Structure formats: C-alpha cells, structure tokens
Computed example of a mutant assay.
Amino acid sequence: MAKQSKSSKFGRFCRKLLRIFIILFILSNIYLVVCKWVMPPITITQFTNFFGYGLKRDYVKWDEISPNLKLAVMASEDQLFPDHDGFDWKALEKSLSTNSKKKNKIRGTGASTLSQQTAKNVFLWQGNGVFRYIRKAPEFYYTKMIEWVWGKKRILDVYLNTVEMGPGIFGVEAAAQAYFHKSAKNVSRSEAAMIIACLPNPKVFTVKPMSRFVQWKYQWILKQMNNISDDPDIMALTK
C-alpha cells in the first residue's frame, strides 16, 4: 500500500508538472504573437542585469533607427539574414567542426543568426555551461516561430531594441545616447559600426572607453558594410 501511495503521489506530481508546462507553453506562444506588434516589456537578461547595472532602455520605432545601424548589425552578425530560414546551416556545420585550437578565433559572422539571438534575447536566457544545451531545443522552436510569425523586418526591429550594448544598456537608442549623445536615428556609419562592434560581449568589449577589440572590429564592420550595402535584399531591410 505504501509503495502504491508513493507511486500515486509521484504520478499526480508529474501530471501537475505537465499541466503547468502546457499552460506556460501556450502562454509563451500568445506572448510571441503579441510581440509581433508590441515590444517585450522586459527580458530575462534585462531583469537580471537590473540589480547590478541598472536598466537604460528606450524602445524606438523602426523609422527612428538609422539605416546605418541596420546595415552594421547584418554586416557584423549575420550577412545571410535576409536569405536563411532562421538558421545558417553552413556556418553551424563549420562552427561544430572547428577544433579546440581555433575555437577562440574571431569571426565576423557565426552559427548563431540574428533570428536565433532574438529568440534567445526575448524568450530565453543567456549563458554557457549545461544551461546552454538545455536552451537549444526551445531556441530552435522560438527561432522558427518568429521567422513564421514576425518576419525578417520585425525580427531585426526587436533585436536592435532589446540587445545588450553595454553594462545595463539595452537597445540602439540607449546605446546611441550613452556613447554619442544623439538619437539612434542620427547615428553615422562609423558610430553604428562602433556600437555593433561591442557584440557579443558588451561588458568586456566596451565602446567608451574603446577597447582594443572594438577598435579593431568596428573597422572590419565598416568594410563588410561596404561589401554588402548594394545587395537588394539587404537594402530592403535597411529602409
């Protein structure tokens, strides 16, 4: 009887856990649809940063973001963004085959696309270790969902408004104000490259004072911007 009682309690616990998971899953999908039109009120990364660095953030509309910033982030992070389905499979295969001696080599673009980064920023959490592998399945799901529901323009819009760009600084408007005392709409090409160069570690790769990494990378980004600026699909996403 005792064994049956324990088994029954465990079964009820599992069923309750499953119901909670299903409810949270449904709510997250409703939230995903709402975010097609409404910016996320707060992300996990923003929340966790608040207690140590504060929160500097000012969401702006698509037309209030300089085309230079849109071009710079694609040039730096994901040059195939207009063309892929959320995943750059060739870059992913390349990153998985890279041996340990080359794993720290700096690459301008990598396996993690802007769509993946946006899904992670809005719906999931940052960090490496074991939690990184736990995150992979939901990251895949939310990446595909925002590709289907939001579309490329909205993904880029949300990314530029929510990505961390300095200690406690989130989004291009807050970054432009903090680093250059101007709105994101008026950022020059060089300034855009400097802001984007702080990715993927804006707490270490600082814009002001300018770290050696940012000093090198922003010049690389400028060259990449020149290389892709006349691509019709890229141009369509910078307007």
Rank of each mutant, 00 (worst) to 15 (best):
M1R: 07
A2V: 09
S5R: 13
K6L: 12
K6P: 01
S7D: 10
F10Y: 09
R12T: 10
C14T: 01
K16H: 08
L17M: 13
R19I: 12
F21A: 15
I22R: 03
L24N: 15
I26P: 04
I26Q: 03
L27G: 03
S28P: 04
V34M: 14
V34K: 13
C35R: 05
K36T: 05
V38K: 11
V38A: 02
V38D: 00
V38H: 14
P40M: 08
P41Y: 10
I42R: 07
I42M: 08
T43F: 02
T43L: 07
T43R: 07
T43M: 02
I44A: 14
Q46A: 11
F47M: 11
T48Y: 12
Y53V: 04
L55P: 05
K56V: 08
R57N: 07
D58G: 07
D58T: 14
W62E: 05
W62D: 10
P67D: 08
K70Y: 13
A72N: 05
V73E: 03
V73Y: 02
A75W: 05
E77L: 13
F81Q: 14
P82N: 01
P82C: 00
D83A: 12
D85Y: 11
G86H: 07
G86Q: 11
F87V: 14
E93N: 02
S95G: 02
K102Y: 09
K103T: 10
N104D: 14
K105G: 04
K105P: 03
G108K: 05
T113W: 03
L114R: 05
Q116E: 13
K120N: 08
N121A: 03
V122P: 06
V122F: 05
L124A: 04
W125Q: 06
W125L: 03
W125S: 05
V130T: 08
R132S: 15
R132G: 07
I134G: 05
R135N: 13
R135Y: 09
A137D: 02
Y141P: 00
Y141A: 01
Y142G: 01
I146L: 13
V149F: 15
W150Q: 01
K152L: 11
K153G: 01
L156R: 03
L156P: 10
Y159V: 12
L160S: 01
T162H: 05
E164H: 11
P167S: 14
G168K: 10
I169G: 09
V172P: 08
A174D: 12
Q177R: 14
F180S: 10
H181T: 10
S183P: 07
A184Y: 11
N186M: 11
N186I: 01
S188M: 03
M194D: 05
I195G: 00
C198I: 02
N201E: 11
V204P: 04
F205G: 01
T206R: 15
M210V: 01
S211F: 07
R212N: 14
R212C: 03
Q215C: 00
W216P: 00
W216E: 10
W216L: 11
K217T: 13
K217E: 11
K217F: 13
W220S: 06
M225F: 06
M225R: 06
M225E: 08
N227C: 04
S229G: 04
S229E: 15
D230Q: 15
P232H: 13
D233G: 03
I234T: 07
